[in-house]
Simulated scan of single mutants.
Amino acid sequence: MWKKTENLFYVHAILQLLAVLLVTTAAIMSVKNFSNSFNNSHQRIGLALYGIIWLQVLVGFLLPQRGSKGRSVWFFVHWAIGIAVALLGVLNIYTGLQAYHDKTSRSTWPWTIILTVQISSIVLFYLFQDKWVHIQNQGVTMGNEPTRITCQEVSVDDKKKELKVESC
C-alpha cells in the first residue's frame, strides 16, 4: 500500500510542476504578446490565479512530516488552495471566452458548450469516484450483474436459548 501511495504522490508532484511551468510560459507569452492593462475580468482573474498557483507551490514544498501537529492544517490549506485554483481556472476560461467574443464579435457558444460538457463530466466523475466503494459495499447492482434474492427469517426460541434460521 505504501508504494502505491508514494507513486501517486510523485505522479501528483510531477504533473503539478509541469502545470506550473505551462502556466508560467503562458503568462510570459501573454505579457509579451498582448496589452495587459488588467482592465477586464479575464486578465485580473488570470493574475490572481497565477499568484495563487505559486502560493500552492510554496505550500506544497512546506509539507510537514507525518504525525506532526501541523499536518492536518497543512492538508486542509493545500486542498483549499487547490480547489480555489481549479474553480478560478474554470471561471477564467469562461471570462476569456467572453473577452474574446467582446473583442472579435465572433460566436463562442460552441466552445462554451464543449467546456460546460467537459467540466460537468469531470465534476460527475469526481463526485462518483468517491462513492464507488460505498455503492459496491451496499450490494447495489449496476444492471449487468445477476440479482439473487435471499430471504431468511430469524427467530429466537427463549425456552431453548437458541437462534433458528428458516428460509422463507
Rank of each mutant, 00 (worst) to 15 (best):
V20Y: 05
V154P: 01
G67F: 07
A26W: 06
D130E: 14
G143H: 10
V85R: 09
R44H: 02
Y126H: 05
I135D: 12
L91P: 00
V77H: 02
H134P: 00
L91T: 10
K160F: 05
H12D: 03
C168G: 04
N33H: 12
S167F: 05
S167N: 11
L115K: 13
P64Y: 13
A48I: 12
Q152L: 07
V77K: 01
S68Q: 12
W132F: 08
T116R: 08
H134S: 13
L87W: 06
N36S: 11
F125W: 11
G60I: 08
I53N: 00
I119K: 03
W74V: 12
W2V: 05
T150Y: 11
E166T: 15
L21V: 02
K164Q: 10
F76D: 12
W54S: 02
F34Y: 13
S72Y: 03
A19V: 11
S35P: 00
L163D: 06
I135V: 15
S41P: 02
V117Q: 09
A19I: 10
F9M: 08
N137T: 01
I45N: 03
D102T: 04
T150N: 13
V156Y: 14
H12W: 10
L88Y: 06
G70W: 08
L127A: 13
D102R: 11
T141K: 05
A27S: 14
Q56W: 01
H78W: 08
H42N: 06
Y10S: 07
V154T: 05
Q98F: 02
T5N: 07
I53R: 00
H101A: 11
N39D: 15
L115Y: 13
E145P: 00
